[in-house]
Design a protein around this nucleic acid. Structure first.
Lengths: 84, 84
DNA sequence: TGCGCTTATGATCTTTAGATCATGAGCAGG
DNA sequence: CCTGCTCATGATCTAAAGATCATAAGCGCA
């Protein structure tokens, strides 16, 4: 799994994917990350305006990591699972 | 350039590095990203509690991109320029 | 040493994220 | 159908981010 994040929606999508892969409900993730189920719902829907801390908490619980790097001329193959 | 982001501080650091590489002042970045200089100062200092939208605006202005991926067993060489 | 540029900090105000509770909508299985 | 589980939404309240202005602190250089 490796996805670009240009807009909040991308992040929400990656989170949902990872969560489903682990067969967790939003409530499961909520207890593991100390973030409310309602908040997770919003984040996954990409409804923006989320704090970085919240995101990092979710990613950590899901065993995901974030990277920053200089923008590459991305090729299609750099993307993975953009759609459900 | 490729850095992990586990805590807000990492992000601030990456941003500062990229900004310096472009020889921009915080004020320059501010005008280009529509984020206040004061806010940039806080972000770069890693004083946490930043909104994702703010971060994404800064990264975009700096030609940086964010990636999410499943956590790897990182080696030291995965890190680059941790220190100033 | 004093000016000018860059960054840090501080105060106030507005907006908004997230906590919290309640509940509604979608859907699977019995 | 009805029930139960999962996710979405809505209201309210509190804490905190960001806008904005002002200013201080750090530093290189004439």
């Amino acid at each position: 799994m490796q996805n670009f994040v240009r807009i909040p929606r991308d992040l929400g999508h990656a989170i949902r994917l990872a969560r489903r892969e682990k067969n967790w409900t939003q409530a499961d993730l909520a207890t593991r990350s100390v973030v409310w189920q309602e908040t997770i719902s919003k984040v996954e829907a990409g409804r923006g305006g989320t704090k970085l801390d919240t995101i990092l908490a979710l990613l950590a619980a899901l065993d995901l990591e974030l990277l920053v790097r200089t923008r590459s001329k991305g090729t299609a193959s750099d993307f993975d699972n953009i759609f459900d």
